[in-house]
Amino acid sequence: MINKLLIIIGIIGMLLILLPILVNFQSPTNLSALAEEYVRGSVNDLKSPNVVTSVVVTYRGLDTLGEVTVLFLATLGVGFLLENKKNKSTQRTVSENIRTTSSFLVSLIMVLGIYIFTHGHLSPGGGFQGGVVIASGFLLLILSDLDFKISHAILRFVESISGLVYVLIGLIGLVLTIGFLNPAILPLGKYGDLFSAGAIPLIYSLIGLKVGSELTNIIATMGSDRSSESVVKEER
């Protein structure tokens, strides 16, 4: 009884915190001064058509570095808790159809993922989305082929190298005294080209590789931990 009362008090408290946002809400008709500056700067200073990418990679680049670190810590936690136990207890077989279709689809999914993160400055997408698409390709591979084993050493290598190069690119900006993570360390090129917007495609590709390898690591660690699954099988 007292529990339910506390829950209701908690919900009402949250509602009271949120209510001012709702009551004072007016549909904005213009961009804020900061957003206007970002939209103009993306065209004039960075030559990157996708303003969201400009904000994520350049204007708030330090935040993105921090968020990639959070992702890394979460992956570390998953790997630390679920140690890779060599458990050969899979009597399950995968049907021929699924195996054939997935081996055909995986290559297409990988190409789509790479396309999404290399074109992050031109079209909707970028490193985070492309990385997730690549991880979903690996998930399909793990689900369809039970003997499939990803080398954790390679994943860790790709992940740490891309993280290191990401920070080094930022530091080059400091050495050239144009600012940390400034993409102008490379020539800006022509507006709308694939090789334009300075270092933005390079940084976003590195983020894509890092996110992709980290999420693949999470999936592979969870997939290889079949000890609880075998318990369920014995109960049946």
Partner: peptide, 9 residues
Amino acid sequence: LTAIVIGLA
């Protein structure tokens, strides 16, 4: 954009 990926992790 970043919050979704962090939420997943």
